[in-house]
């Protein structure tokens, strides 16, 4: 069978589908001071998954927490990678209490594209990954 670390090189999704892969990628991102991008990506996925079993109040609290931590501060690594229009859309949703499971989807896609084009290829060439393999 293919060892997991070779699968990680196939696509960002194969990497993010493996606990050890996530751990190593996060260590790399931490070095580059952009681990927040990965946390945000997972927070968006988690937010979308919560809809079925959780009440509106919890969703609102969570949406506010994600907004405050990653988007509100324009100097934050995540905020800097998200388009202004996407940010104002999320801000509007939070302010008007329009909480929707898909409200972070566009922002997540933008961060994902950034990782696919930038940090993920760098990770595959990094000492951290090469030493692991």
């Amino acid at each position: 069978p293919t060892p997991p670390y070779l699968k990680w090189a196939e696509s960002l999704h194969s990497l993010l589908d493996d606990q050890d892969g996530i751990h190593l990628f996060r260590t790399f991102l931490k070095q580059e001071e952009c681990a927040d991008m990965l946390d945000f990506w997972f927070a968006c996925s988690g937010f979308r998954k919560q809809e079925a079993n959780d009440g509106n109040e919890k969703m609102l609290k969570l949406a506010k927490a994600i907004y405050k931590k990653y988007i509100l501060d324009n100097n934050g690594i995540v905020s800097r990678q998200i388009k202004p229009a996407t940010k104002s859309f999320i801000k509007d949703c939070v302010m008007k209490l329009h909480i929707d499971p898909a409200m972070f989807d566009q922002a997540q896609t933008e961060i994902q594209t950034m990782m696919e084009e930038n940090t993920y290829p760098l990770f595959l060439k990094s000492d951290i990954y090469l030493e692991y393999t």
């Binding site: 996530i22 996925s45 988690g46 937010f47 927490a65």
Partner: peptide, 20 residues
């Protein structure tokens, strides 16, 4: 603030793949 962070952390963990 703590509970907000906990909520966020719980949300992030819920999206991670389970140990194989």
């Amino acid at each position: 603030i703590d509970s907000e962070d906990d909520l966020l952390q719980e949300c992030i963990s819920s999206a991670m793949p389970k140990k194989k």
